[in-house]
Design a protein around this nucleic acid. Structure first.
Lengths: 230, 230
DNA sequence: GCCGAGAGTTGACATTTATCAAGTGAATGC
DNA sequence: GCATTCACTTGATAAATGTCAACTCTCGGC
């Protein structure tokens, strides 16, 4: 089902190089839907029927085990999610829920796999995307295993700052409790970690962060491109 | 450089479906080398010049930051490693060192990327492999974030048991200190964790593990296919 | 303007995990 | 045979992190 977002989707690295005929065929098979906040789009363990493309809003990817839950990532427009499950035709490993009101395109996994077999450029783009995702998760594992929660927070702030343009004052785009979960800690611990970064020049007011001493913070965080660069 | 292992490599899922001409071209460009134990094959951050195929022996993939080090995975024959860095032509995110005497085939990354562009079956296999690797790392992240170290060990033992055929007595194929690092804990803590599993019917003698009460252990470990099934 | 809901914070405390130091035990080499 | 090495274990202690309960603050609805 064509849609005003069609060109933005086309510009995604995943779709930009493929033949137009194949792109149109994917779009035709797809449909776009609006979801209210806090709707569970995907449940881990379910078969992966659709490749999802987030057009507007935001989506939380999370996982559960034994009554515990953790945020794995936050998806922001415009990007796809759960590509790996789609191409492998395997069950989802993560659940997904909308954080805010979101507009999402659903492309049947079957069609993705068909077009993949016909279009070499698309295949190449999928490989690139998967390899990048893989490397992202490896970086995340290194972050988790090699750093304390204070160090993870410090580096998270530096990454967020860079995403916001690098100025000393910037804003978290995520609720703190979700930040905590992404970083593998509790909300209470995050609160204390923010305090623990005060000696390194970090001031927190609500979601607004001010870094008064960039050098000090970087000296403590020791950011590393092989962990922190996306 | 052709080699007696050529057929075994050909049988790897990654290479099994590709055209013979392309396979031969990869093999011709490659060379095989023997390494003694404890040799650093790859250093994280270096450019990824070769796709590695472990033929015999074993290799530890590890990462370092700020004088800390952690084992990310153990590679066993016959399998490839650092495929993602090769296809993206990006620096290695992990270092690799031989654990024991190992025989390794090195295929120039350049050739892999060239053949990838020519051979659709090979491209398809790379996608499968990458998607599987990605899912493996996601499972690992869930293990790390959702479980305590005792639970991780319990599930590790169950997975190892399954790999050994499922009998109540089996052997760890890895030094305990490496097991500890893979599970994200210290050796000391692993030692205590083994003790902590005694009430659930786990007996440890050197590297030999005896599970005297399968039900109890599984009841505690709560293994989950979305985390533990490989 | 008041109220309620929910995110965030704080303090007290428990648990988990790491660190340091000392010891055991088995394999290796001279 | 004995010393050495190194993985592993153990105990004492410290540090990091989680849990629980109470509290504050803000925001939106009425």
């Amino acid at each position: 089902m064509p849609d005003s977002y069609s060109q933005d989707i086309r510009d995604l690295h995943l779709f930009s190089e493929m033949e137009d005929q194949h792109f149109q065929s994917l779009i035709r098979a797809a449909y776009v839907q609006n979801f209210p906040p806090q709707i569970e789009l995907i449940t881990e363990g379910d078969p992966s029927d659709f490749l999802h493309v987030l057009l507007t809003g935001s989506v939380d990817l999370f996982s559960s085990w034994n009554d515990r839950e953790t945020s794995m990532a936050t998806v922001r427009p415009i990007s796809t999610f759960i590509l790996a499950a789609t191409v492998r035709d395997a069950p989802y490993l993560m659940s997904a829920r909308t954080i805010e009101k979101s507009r999402i395109m659903l492309i049947p996994s079957q069609n993705v796999r068909e077009v993949f077999d016909q279009d070499g450029q698309f295949a190449r783009a999928i490989v690139d995307e998967l390899a990048q995702c893989y490397r992202g998760v490896i970086k995340n594992t290194k972050d988790l295993k090699l750093r304390t929660s204070l160090e993870r927070l410090a580096n998270y702030l530096l990454r967020q700052q860079a995403r916001c343009g690098g100025a000393p004052v910037f804003t978290l785009d995520t609720e703190k409790r979700r930040v905590a979960s992404v970083l593998g800690m509790t909300s209470e611990n995050l609160s204390r970690a923010f305090k623990g970064l005060r000696p390194y020049g970090v001031c927190v007011t609500g979601r607004q962060i001010t870094i008064t001493n960039q050098q000090d913070l970087e000296g403590f965080a020791k950011p590393n491109p092989l962990i922190d660069q996306r």
